[in-house]
Amino acid sequence: MYETTYHRAESVADAATRLAGAEDGKLLAGGQTLLPTMKQRLAAPSDVIDLTHIADLKGIAETGGGVRIGAATTHAEVAGSEIVKRLLPGLAALAGHIGDPHVRHRGTIGGSLANNDPAADYPSAVLALGAVIHTYTRQLPAEEFFAGMFETALDEGEIITAVEFPAATASAYAKYPNPASRYAMAGVFVARLGDGGVRVAVTGAGQDGVFRHEGMEQALAGNFAAEALDGIAVDADEMLSDIHGSAEYRAHLVTVMAKRAVAACG
C-alpha cells in the first residue's frame, strides 16, 4: 500500500469538507474492497475519509411504507435486523450471504452501492425493490443510480447517506457464488410489490452490471410460479464471459437462480 492520510469524519459535512480538501481523496466505508485494492496498489488515494463513525449514517428504521438503512450500516446488521427480516426477508438473506462473516462485520451497504461491482449482491435488491438512494444533496431512484460496471450516477464527492426500501409483499434472492470469492456469478432478486407487479433484477451476470429482466417480470406477473420462467430467454450476448464461466453458462444460471428465488418467495 502506498502512503495515505487517514481522516475520521465526525459528520457528513465534515467528510465532504475533508474530501474536497484532499488532492485525491477516497471515502472509506467498510473498506472491504478499497483496502484490498490499495494493498495491491491498484488504488493510491492521497487521503482516505472514514465514514463509519458518523452516527447519522448508521442504523435501520421502519418508515411509513418500508425500511430506511443508513449508508454505514454493516451487512451483518442488515442480516440480523428484525425489521428487515419481517418486511424484506429477501434483503436480510442477501446481506447474510455477502462475502464471509468477517467481511459482513465491516462491509457497508453504502460502500457496496457506491462501488457498484458488477458481481455485488446489493444492487440487485436495490433495483428489484425500486429503492431510493439518499445522498448528501439529493435522492436518486434505483433506476437512475446504476450506470454500468463500477459506474453510478453519483457526482464527484457525493456521499450516500441512506437507502430507503419500500416494503414488498414477497422478496427473495438466490445466487450462485463463485466458490473462491463468494461474489455472485449470477444472483437474482425477485420482488412482488404491493401493486401486484413483479420485478426481477440480475447481478453478477450482465456485461453492464445489474439489470432488470422484463420478460421474466411479465411472465411472473401473469403466473407467479417457477415454471412460468420456462422458455423465457436470457440473451447470452449480454452476459459476462470470463475464466469463471462462459456467457452461455451465466445465461443458464440466471434462469436457474430466478426460479429458486421465485420458489423461495413461497
Partner: peptide
C-alpha cells in the same frame, strides 16, 4: 494478504474482522 484466508482474524469491539483489511487508525 488479500483478505481471503482469515489467518488474521481478531475481534474488534467483540466482532470478528480480518485485521489485514482494516487500518490500525480505524
Amino acid at each position: 494478504d488479500t483478505s481471503q484466508c482469515g489467518a488474521c482474524v481478531v475481534h474488534v469491539d467483540g466482532k470478528a474482522v480480518k485485521s489485514c483489511t482494516m487500518l490500525a487508525a480505524q
